[in-house]
């Protein structure tokens, strides 16, 4: 029953992002298009750093921290979601320390190889980009993100795919939760699904979610949905939005072209001298 509750819990977790997106903070009120663009710039800047430029990357943490604080997003659930992807990032970077032994940082008591630096660089880049994406969803909502993507002329088919996939995740999880309940209620003493039942169970779930997704799509079609999602309350981009974008873009540019931690270090040590 533990796993069952996990499936249901995950469902509530997914929906929690949608609920967070309905808040009305300063960040939530920024135009969706501006938030999408800011996130794109942030992602581009983050991944553009060289694999050994770990210290230059650090100031970029300022963005998620500020966003989480201003948008009143609870930290723990967001970090938990990040943990799901962390193993993947570790998987990508874990071989760097094994193959790259070139010493990069030499201190009297320790030598750090290039492999470890690039490993942490990958970890930070991965963490920052996931965080930025989660923050975007939690402050904007998938439907408004979709309409923003349409504004920048992303093809309708891709946007539709994104929206329906997002919707399908919760449909799939609801069905998975139900199937799991039904199985567990008739399989007392089992901690998980017997491998013999995996096939039929997965097949059943696929068919049921397909049917369900079909009905959801039909319900959309019956109310005039023709592939173009209309969010209704489309606001105009205001001076406040442009200012928001400019400030962040300037910060990202400064972080990219100047190694802020090194500069601050020099200033501090200069003052101390």
């Amino acid at each position: 029953m533990i796993v069952m509750s996990n499936i249901i819990k995950s469902l509530y977790n997914i929906r929690m992002l949608d609920e967070l997106a309905e808040k009305r903070t300063f960040i939530h009120n920024i135009h969706p298009l501006i938030k999408v663009l800011t996130t794109c710039v942030y992602l581009t800047v983050t991944v553009s750093f060289d694999k050994y430029e770990l210290s230059g990357l650090l100031p970029l943490i300022f963005y998620p921290v500020v966003m989480i604080t201003l948008a009143e997003i609870p930290m723990i659930p967001i970090l938990k979601r990040m943990l799901v992807v962390i193993p993947l990032i570790i998987g990508i970077g874990i071989f760097n320390p094994l193959f790259d032994h070139k010493p990069m940082v030499v201190l009297p008591w320790i030598q750090i190889s290039g492999g470890w630096i690039s490993f942490f660089s990958i970890m930070f880049k991965g963490g920052f980009t996931i965080l930025a994406a989660l923050i975007l969803i939690a402050t904007t909502g998938m439907t408004r993100i979709a309409s923003a993507l349409r504004m920048i002329r992303v093809p309708r088919l891709f946007v539709l795919q994104l929206l329906l996939t997002y919707r399908y995740i919760s449909v799939l999880m609801e069905e998975a939760g139900r199937t799991w309940n039904a199985y567990m209620l008739r399989a007392p003493g089992q901690k998980s699904v017997n491998p013999k039942a995996w096939g039929p169970l997965a097949g059943q779930m696929l068919m049921r979610t397909y049917d369900r997704a079909q009905r959801v799509y039909q319900a959309m079609g019956l109310r005039g949905f023709n592939g173009e999602y209309n969010p209704g309350d489309v606001k105009k981009v205001t001076v406040k939005d442009i200012l928001y974008f400019t400030c962040w873009a300037a910060f990202f540019a400064v972080s990219r072209y100047f190694n802020l931690p090194a500069l601050i270090g020099e200033v501090v040590t200069g003052v101390m001298k």
């Binding site: 949608d18 609920e19 997106a21 309905e22 909502g141 439907t143 919707r167 369900r212 959801v216 319900a219």
Partner: peptide
């Protein structure tokens, strides 16, 4: 449930 798919 099939009909209600938006967030609010």
């Amino acid at each position: 449930d099939d009909q209600l798919f938006m967030t609010t």
